[in-house]
């Protein structure tokens, strides 16, 4: 956690500096004779100062604990990727992002939703030692869930809530 805190602290300081610069560059609206205390940059700058203090505290605290000794070894990455939990996490992230950020909006919604549910179930329930019968049962369950749910969501939002599907 100390390494994560160190990096978070640095990120907060960078964010604060960026916000401070941007706040300074925001218009003062003198030509409109507005009160100088109502200018748009004042609150973001105030928040940036507070976040910078927090960032500095995190950095100082983590440096004292030795969190600034960062290292990235091939062995460490291999270990992280070999962990079954991390693998599931990565797979979930890839599937959800491909579905929501790439496919939805560019392909027919009902079709791609059904496909997403089917692939998600199949990928996570598939095991190497599965018999054909088990695989068939799992595939059927995934297909039924995919078809029923994709159709139900599409119908509910399009027909009942009158939302144009993405």
């Amino acid at each position: 956690m100390k390494k994560a805190d160190y990096l978070t602290g640095l990120a907060l300081i960078l964010l604060s500096v960026y916000v401070l610069v941007e706040s300074w560059r925001m218009p003062r609206l003198q030509e409109l004779h507005v009160n100088p205390f109502s200018v748009p940059g004042i609150v973001p700058a105030f928040l940036a100062v507070v976040l910078m203090i927090f960032g500095l505290i995190l950095v100082v605290r983590s440096v004292r604990a030795g969190g600034h000794h960062l290292s990235l070894s091939r062995e460490g990455i291999r270990k992280t990727l070999a962990d079954p939990g991390n693998r599931r996490l990565l797979l979930t992230a890839v599937l959800t992002f491909v579905y929501a950020a790439v496919l939805v909006g560019h392909t027919p919604y009902t079709l791609v939703t059904g496909l997403f549910i089917f692939v998600f179930v199949a990928v996570f329930e598939w095991r190497r030692d599965m018999s054909r019968r088990e695989m068939g049962r799992m595939g059927l369950a995934a297909a039924v869930l995919a078809i029923v749910f994709a159709a139900a969501v599409s119908y509910t939002f399009e027909r009942l809530f009158l939302v144009t599907l993405p």
């Binding site: 939805v104 998600f120 939002f157 993405p166």
Partner: peptide, 25 residues
């Protein structure tokens, strides 16, 4: 494994449906 894809589909359509903007997804 069957619940989470369904939940995520609802997350996507729920975010979109308020203003019909893909940006909200």
């Amino acid at each position: 494994t069957r619940l989470m894809p369904v939940v995520f589909v609802l997350c996507v359509i729920g975010s979109y449906a308020i203003t019909s903007r893909v940006f909200d997804i």
